[in-house]
């Protein structure tokens, strides 16, 4: 459901995002890179928090979760995120590139941009991810010995 952002309401251009929680963090990805969503009760479903190595304090567990299916060059990634999951339009004027030193030292290529919504002290940081750059999920095949070629 779209959420109004009064201070930036006059900005006509924007980018459609899907916004969701991961513990204490608020993340978002482009709407066009989300293929679908379903409820999950499976606590062992692969989570975005684990994939991004978000520390436990920032990734506090919440009872309700959603499985988001992200578009990815290697095939769709289904990852557990926290509710609420919101379809939302971010005005382009609110979107900021990563600060230069953070960009230089950032180990996750999927962290692409930042935005603040609201006003201090109640402002909230939105971390915008590029779903195509998400790290690859480790699978059981990763732990198997490579096949021996004759």
């Amino acid at each position: 459901m779209p959420e109004s952002m009064d201070p930036l309401a006059t900005d006509v251009s924007g980018i459609d995002l899907v916004r969701f929680g991961v513990g204490a963090l608020t993340l978002a990805v482009e709407r066009v890179k989300v293929r679908g969503m379903c409820k999950t009760q499976d606590p062992f479903a692969p989570s975005l928090a684990t994939l991004l190595q978000i520390p436990q304090s920032a990734a506090a567990a919440t009872p309700l979760g959603r499985l988001l299916e992200f578009d990815h060059p290697e095939g769709p990634h289904s990852l557990r995120v926290d509710e609420p999951v919101i379809h939302w339009r971010l005005p382009t004027s609110a979107l900021r590139p990563l600060p230069p030193l953070l960009a230089a030292r950032q180990s996750l290529a999927c962290v692409r941009a930042l935005a603040y919504i609201g006003h201090p002290p109640d402002d909230r940081l939105i971390i915008v991810l590029d779903a195509w750059q998400l790290p690859r999920l480790a699978t059981a095949a990763d732990h198997e010995d490579p096949p021996v070629l004759d």
Binding site: R96, P99, L102, R105, V111, L114, P120, P121, D123, L125
Partner: peptide, 25 residues
């Protein structure tokens, strides 16, 4: 002020702050 954590940063980079609309590490 409140420093917001960003995943993927080294531990020496604590996060970002909002400085009158600008985002600073």
């Amino acid at each position: 002020t409140t420093i917001h954590f960003v995943p993927g940063c080294p531990s020496s980079l604590e996060g970002v702050i909002n400085v009158r609309g600008d985002i600073t590490s």
